[in-house]
Amino acid sequence: MTDEPRTATLRTDHGTPTRAEWVAAAVTPDNTDSMATTVEGTAVRTEITRETTGGLQTTVDDYVVNLGVAQAVIEAVDDRSPGEADSSTAANQQADDTLHHE
């Protein structure tokens, strides 16, 4: 048996550089010291290194769940129609317009 650490590299494409940045920003806070996440164009790349196969599997499983949640949130936001804008955003825009036109 070898004492070499186990590694996994996960690369997911998110269609645009902005979406990739959003996904990376969402998953990175949950990274452990054994993980490194970067953005490569439209893709998010995460390298995971663990001492045991079981530890690697657990970390990959947790990361994939976090990735799925991040992707679902981004898709939900993208699916909102412009007419569904947050009322506080609309109120802030109206207040901003009023301040600039008085």
Rank of each mutant, 00 (worst) to 15 (best):
V27L: 02
E21S: 13
Q57H: 02
T59L: 00
V23R: 03
T42R: 05
A8Q: 00
A76V: 03
D96T: 12
T2P: 11
T18A: 09
A24I: 02
Q57S: 10
A85P: 03
R6D: 00
D78V: 12
Q71D: 15
T89P: 06
S34D: 12
E84S: 14
V39S: 04
T98N: 09
Q71N: 14
D79P: 04
G83N: 06
D97M: 12
V77H: 11
M1D: 08
Q71A: 15
S81H: 08
G83Q: 07
L99W: 11
H14N: 11
R50K: 14
D62G: 02
T12H: 12
V73T: 10
A91M: 07
R45N: 04
T18L: 10
D33Y: 08
A72F: 02
R11G: 03
G68R: 02
D97S: 13
T53D: 10
A24E: 11
G41F: 06
N31C: 11
E21V: 09
M1R: 10
T49F: 00
E51S: 14
D78M: 10
T16W: 08
N66W: 02
D13F: 05
L67Y: 03
T98W: 08
S34H: 12
M1L: 11
R80L: 14
T16H: 05
L10D: 02
H14Q: 11
A91N: 14
Q94E: 13
A95T: 08
R50P: 00
T32M: 04
T53N: 04
T52Q: 02
Y63W: 15
E4N: 06
T9D: 08
A24F: 00
R45G: 03
H100T: 10
A95Y: 00
V39R: 09
L99V: 09
H14E: 13
I48G: 02
T52Y: 06
E21M: 11
D30K: 08
T37S: 10
R19E: 13
E40A: 15
T32I: 11
V44L: 03
A43K: 11
N66P: 04
A8C: 07
L67V: 01
T12D: 12
V77C: 07
D30P: 01
T42E: 13
D62A: 10
A72D: 12
D78W: 01
A91S: 15
D78N: 14
S34P: 02
S88R: 09
L99Q: 09
D30L: 09
W22R: 15
T46G: 04
D61M: 06
A20Y: 09
T58W: 01
T49M: 04
D30G: 13
R80V: 07
S34M: 04
Q93C: 05
D97Q: 14
T16P: 13
T16K: 01
A72G: 04
V65K: 03
H14W: 12
G55P: 03
D96N: 05
V39A: 05
H101Q: 15
E75H: 07
A85M: 10
D62M: 03
T58N: 07
T12N: 10
D97T: 14
A76N: 11
N92Y: 05
H100L: 15
A95L: 09
T98L: 14
P5F: 04
T28R: 10
R50T: 12
A85W: 03
A20N: 11
V73N: 01
R19C: 07
D3W: 03
